[in-house]
Design a protein around this nucleic acid. Structure first.
Lengths: 350, 350
DNA sequence: GCGCGCTACTAGCGCGCGACAGTCACGCTA
DNA sequence: TAGCGTGACTGTCGCGCGCTAGTAGCGCGC
């Protein structure tokens, strides 16, 4: 019937080279102007209900879908937010999930870019900017503060889960001090005194959590028991730290507070394989309450961040910057909360 | 709306323009044509080395970055692949990670779209198409075969990890039969006879694995022990199945083969909480060998799919369709391999 | 002097759409 | 009847770029 049809029929033509239908095709089909079709698809006043109906019908028949790239090009605002996250980090995945609803609510489209081992964050970010993201949401970025500042000078940037001194960007994180404090309180309350911390190096959030751990230990009069082991925010980091503890001459701590859940899971892994009973011999506490911490039989005691609100605040912050209602540089912090599960318990006497 | 953008890079730029710099700005800065700048940025012959140097220098000075949207619009080929995945599925995350290197190698850019609870696959796919993806890679899509066929009629589509009868798309999966066969062989070899299967309903790959399980059981003469429990590919599905088994009047099977890792982890969760010893009382085997199966103290016996090769084949398949070197409809299957870990062992006599 | 081939560059159209200033028919008022 | 307003629609420009067909300039051989 229609001359321009999507490439159907795997039978006849070897390469049915059919163009994707455009607005002009729809307009021609109905004998109206492109502008009218445009109006209808943008849901703007200026078209009668019957016309709208006919336009939609014709569009469906031809298989027309609006072309984002052209739309972005033509209109000033792209309404696209770029989201950078680390594919392996379950907490980031949680954040991404939570960002979608608010973004949609405020009329933004999302483009995701994953930082993976073979592809560093610089490339991922450039891809986002290249795809005309109006603003960037960076989940725990590891690039330098200077690079983030440069980005922030180019477009609105919201950083999640990392503290920065002076970059012209918005920050959305949880308070680390109360969370870490709750962890130490919890462990001390159970009777622990030898509470070690496996840190996350310079990874986002790690310095703050390390500092918060130190403060909490001091305020419990356990300054001399402070023991900080180098780690990072991956399972491997936790595994290595655990191996180090086992191989060490010093006795094992009775509790370990890891800088994030993945690191904690790495600890769990090596300890249980080595026959160390969790939590009888060693209690383990993580940070983030990513979805894998609660589900499955990992059952990790951890600190829950309010992911839905973090996500909402981040999107709203980006929106505010874009609308120019305020200058960048806001810092938003949320409460976090200890979630006690199976990997923490009273120390056994020895 | 103020026409002047409040955000302005540092005061470095001599001619403070509120617009993002374009190719024309770079060209004007040097007194050359836009086309020349275009050549340089596309790394095409036709510009002298000195000119290239000057163009790059001027671009850097002005802070010019090529505009993807315009580039996509202008050139026929967008060289963008759209990837649909389920954020929560660790196997999908593994796939996404693995897709990046091959895509880059073949000169494709990637746009990710996550299916999350609040945003179904239809929307996610439309977003990808809207962003001008030339081809789609669908990781375990749950939308109907008909919808996939429609998509396949519009643009090249490669489906990972799901079998389809007749959609005009490429399929890249692992053989389910040998994998499931190996699982049953392994369990029978350990002495199991009551081997149940928690299936994945109609989820991608689930019917094939269910069938493969049946066949393998039959060929071991265990047709009468076939026991299939409804489940799905989430932790919750596994948990529910496990609760069902515990509540049931029938004795527990001595081994359970789950349709994927997440489901297996759900089983593990409920069984261990209920005091059922794994693997002494019940052996558990998963499917996918997603990164969380091996790491952490989950230590799940599972079937490893060759993720890097799956990813490579998928990208190559998309590329071939795009280059028109063959018609869609190819089916590529890879070997998969049992990985024995801690959740399977000989049954205890009772 | 001519044509030849080569490198280095330019002119200008078009991608699919949004924005905006029109145009047109129609109905209402004075 | 002219004047005016309004809803429904059209014409056209330009977004930032890719790409094809050019052209100017140069050295070369005869």
């Amino acid at each position: 019937m229609t001359p321009s049809n999507p490439r159907q029929g795997t039978d006849r033509t070897p390469a049915p080279r059919s163009r994707k239908p455009t607005m002009a095709d729809v307009a021609a089909e109905l004998g109206v102007s492109r502008a009218l079709v445009s109006l209808v698809f943008r849901d703007q006043p200026g078209a009668s209900p019957e016309t709208r109906e006919r336009v939609f019908e014709a569009a469906a028949r031809l298989g027309y879908k609006p072309d984002m790239a052209a739309r972005l090009l033509a209109r000033g605002r792209s309404k696209v937010l770029g989201v950078l996250f680390t594919a392996r980090n379950p907490h980031h995945v949680d954040l991404v999930e939570a960002i979608y609803p608010t973004a949609e609510e405020l009329g933004y489209d999302l483009v995701l870019s994953a930082a993976v081992p073979s592809r560093d964050e610089h490339k991922a970010v450039e891809a986002l900017v290249g795809h005309r993201s109006e603003a960037l949401l960076l989940c725990g970025p590891t690039i330098s503060e200077e690079d983030i500042a440069d980005l922030g000078a180019r477009l609105p940037v919201v950083v999640l889960g990392r503290h920065l001194k002076s970059a012209p960007v918005d920050l959305v994180t949880s308070y680390d001090r109360p969370g870490a404090r709750e962890v130490v309180d919890h462990l001390v309350g159970l009777g622990h005194r030898d509470i070690a911390h496996v840190d996350g190096g310079s990874k986002p959030g790690a310095p703050e959590r390390r500092r918060a751990y130190r403060d909490a230990m001091r305020s419990h009069g356990l300054a001399d028991r402070i023991r900080i082991l180098p780690g990072n925010h991956t399972e491997e980091g936790g595994q290595e730290a655990a191996r180090g503890m086992i191989a060490s001459d010093e006795p094992l701590p009775t509790a370990v507070f890891a800088s994030n859940d993945q690191c904690a899971i790495g600890l769990l892994d090596v300890f249980t394989r080595a026959g160390v009973k969790i939590p009888e011999q060693v209690s383990i506490v993580g940070y983030d309450d990513s979805h894998i911490a609660g589900l499955s039989h990992i059952d990790l005691t951890t600190v829950r961040q309010d992911v839905p609100r973090l996500a909402r605040l981040a999107v709203e912050a980006a929106d505010e910057q874009l609308r120019g209602v305020r200058q960048p540089g806001a810092t938003l912090k949320l409460e976090s909360k200890l979630v006690v599960r199976g990997t923490s318990g009273p120390p056994t006497q020895r």
